[in-house]
């Protein structure tokens, strides 16, 4: 007799598919926030599974800071074509041009926080009542408190102290007009689960996750990619190094790691041996102890 057990990846997959179908059933206009990073790629992959053989019942939504790695944009366009999805792009540059957002200045200038402006504009413009994201609870301490179905008020604010309890498989997506939900189907996945799943499912990812040669410089102990978007201090000199990225955000706030891991097996070995979290390379989280919570309350991803 066989045992009716699922593996941990299969169980996590089933949970995520259930959440994605719940979005399609409970909301009228949803969108999948797609950054071109591994987590949103996995969510998009799960969405294809959830609605197979039908098409995705929602578009992919990319909030483009204009400071992306070119490899990410290239990957995004190919990915959208491959899965035959609809893509909506919200532009931070446009928000700046229209005077809705003000570019930061100085050496640590980043458009990370400005993404919120473009995101909320895009949500309003498209009248989205649910935005699916790839955030995970193990990523960051404020995210550890997120619900699968996370309510946002009419100003898109998150109120972490008054969240709805979530029990069993019962998700409450009721809201008033003008409010919306952020939905996180892979809440329970860890970084390792994501990598194992990418390997198991043979999912394509942007090339910069794997080791490659790149012009970089060191800032505050972090390896940063050189680009036109970043203001270097006079003492910051560039050099060619073999690096890879553990997370992908903007070129201005995503640090690389020195690594020669060029296959998924090597990446998984590296991740399992790593003694720092993946967000350790993210300058956007280091601004204060509650940097993520503060951004999230304002409507950030």
């Amino acid at each position: 007799m066989k045992a009716y057990n699922l593996t941990h990846l299969k169980e996590l997959e089933s949970e995520a598919i259930f959440i994605l179908r719940e979005v399609a059933a409970q909301f009228e206009r949803s969108g999948l926030l797609f950054s071109g990073g591994k987590d949103s790629i996995v969510v998009a992959h799960l969405a294809r599974k959830a609605f197979h053989p039908g098409k995705l019942p929602f578009p992919l939504v990319h909030i483009d800071t204009g400071h992306n790695f070119p490899e990410t944009i290239e990957f995004r366009d190919q990915f959208v074509k491959n899965i035959n999805a609809k893509l909506i792009v919200g532009s931070v540059q446009k928000a700046i041009d229209e005077g809705k957002a003000v570019e930061e200045s100085g050496f640590n200038a980043s458009r990370n926080a400005l993404q919120t402006v473009a995101l909320l504009e895009t949500i309003e413009e498209n009248k989205f009542d649910a935005c699916i994201g790839g955030a995970r609870r193990d990523e960051e301490k404020a995210r550890a408190k997120e619900r699968f179905f996370s309510h946002r008020d009419e100003f898109s604010q998150w109120d972490p102290k008054h969240q709805r309890p979530e029990l069993w498989n019962l998700f409450n997506g009721r809201k008033n007009y003008g409010e919306h939900f952020r939905i996180f189907p892979i809440s329970n996945w860890t970084e390792m689960d994501v990598w194992q799943y990418i390997m198991y499912e043979d999912i394509e990812i942007p090339s910069i996750y794997k080791a490659h040669e790149r012009k970089v410089f060191i800032r505050d102990g972090v390896i940063m990619a050189d680009s036109d978007f970043i203001n270097k201090r006079p003492e910051e000199v560039t050099e060619q190094r073999i690096v890879r990225f553990r997370t992908i955000g903007d070129m201005t706030c995503t640090g690389a790691i020195a690594s020669s891991a060029s296959s998924l097996t090597e990446i998984i070995d590296e991740v399992s041996a790593s003694r720092v979290t993946e967000r350790g390379t993210r300058a956007d989280d280091k601004r204060s102890e509650a940097a993520m919570e503060d951004r999230k309350k304002d409507g950030y991803f």
Binding site: K141, A144, K145, P160, K161, Q163, N188
Partner: peptide
Amino acid sequence: GLRAEREQGITIDVAY
């Protein structure tokens, strides 16, 4: 993870 939790030294919510 929440500011209020750290300030007051209490856990408000289920932590996973």
